[in-house]
Simulated scan of single mutants.
Amino acid sequence: MNAKKSPARWLSPASGILFVLHLVLTLLNVGFNGLDTPLSHALAGAAALFFVLFIISERYHPQPLMPRHLRASLPLQISFWTGIFVTAVTCAAWFLLAVTMYQIYGFGGPGIILCFVTLLLMMVSGKAFGEKLGRNVTSASLLLWGFMIAACGLGVMAIMPAFGLVLLPGMLLTGFGAGIARQAAATERDQLTGDEYHYASRLGGWVRVSSALVMLALLTLLLKSNPGRQGIENGYSLLAALALAGVVTALMIPAKRKRNNVTVCQSDNGRFHRQE
């Protein structure tokens, strides 16, 4: 039977989705009900089973989600990891900020929305600053500085989230750095060529959504395991560590040649490639 028409070609995406789903449910159940429960054990076992199925399918299927010749591509790996760390300093940080405003400061919906608007404005400002500065500075340098600024902001908020004079500058730094990092990450992805660009675009969205779900579940676990201020500090510390991991990833980006004008074209087989 043709591999393209075989039901087995859906094994990788199905097992990958089910693995992430059960991993998220495991983290949430541990947070609310504890680790030593039958449901936690069952969900963790199912997550492990689907992970093994995903690995086996990617190893032996003739048409895996990620072609084997691209798995050692450093630019592609950096693109995926960068997407994960950018998600940490955006979506996850927003969630933790809402919890901080509600639990520590007692803000309701309007107050939380106002904080979100402030953070969004800083992200937009960071993105615009990154676009302007990107004309003279490499995207790798921008990515490095964006993650460093976000890590500083998250680190400040981890020190004393109940102190407003610390939380406000931390929030502003986090939003501004996240905006720069998002812009630089998108520029880095657009500089990929050939199949690397195709698979970075094709699988990058799935990687970001999956990482966002897992991070939100992990933050929920931390908040439930350590109620109050301690859990919030642990959450900000985790996000700051992920932002620092983004700094390390940015340092791994190899030096690029002078940027050329490129366009994205679609070949006869439906795959995208870039032409200079």
Rank of each mutant, 00 (worst) to 15 (best):
residue 195 D to N: 07
residue 32 F to P: 00
residue 41 H to Y: 09
residue 93 A to N: 14
residue 190 D to L: 04
residue 237 S to N: 06
residue 48 A to E: 05
residue 201 S to G: 15
residue 18 L to V: 04
residue 265 C to P: 01
residue 144 L to P: 00
residue 1 M to G: 05
residue 46 A to I: 07
residue 68 R to Y: 11
residue 165 L to C: 03
residue 166 V to A: 08
residue 121 L to R: 12
residue 176 F to R: 06
residue 244 L to P: 07
residue 185 A to E: 11
residue 85 F to K: 02
residue 118 T to L: 12
residue 48 A to D: 07
residue 216 L to R: 06
residue 86 V to H: 15
residue 71 R to E: 14
residue 41 H to C: 09
residue 131 E to W: 11
residue 75 P to V: 15
residue 175 G to P: 12
residue 96 L to T: 09
residue 259 R to N: 04
residue 17 I to F: 13
residue 126 G to P: 10
residue 224 K to I: 08
residue 26 T to M: 12
residue 2 N to H: 10
residue 255 A to L: 13
residue 149 I to C: 08
residue 53 L to P: 04
residue 127 K to D: 11
residue 158 A to D: 07
residue 74 L to D: 15
residue 89 V to M: 13
residue 132 K to T: 14
residue 58 E to T: 10
residue 250 A to Y: 13
residue 218 L to A: 15
residue 53 L to W: 10
residue 205 G to V: 08
residue 221 L to P: 00
residue 259 R to W: 08
residue 197 Y to Q: 08
residue 72 A to Q: 14
residue 226 N to F: 02
residue 174 T to G: 08
residue 82 T to F: 09
residue 72 A to Y: 14
residue 90 T to F: 08
residue 262 V to P: 00
residue 143 L to A: 11
residue 157 M to Y: 14
residue 254 P to S: 09
residue 108 G to C: 10
residue 272 F to I: 05
residue 254 P to K: 03
residue 180 I to P: 00
residue 173 L to D: 04
residue 112 I to V: 13
residue 219 L to G: 00
residue 150 A to V: 03
residue 1 M to C: 09
residue 104 I to H: 02
residue 67 P to E: 14
residue 85 F to D: 01
residue 19 F to L: 14
residue 61 H to P: 04
residue 232 I to F: 07
residue 48 A to L: 05
residue 87 T to I: 13
residue 246 G to Y: 06
residue 81 W to T: 11
residue 79 S to I: 14
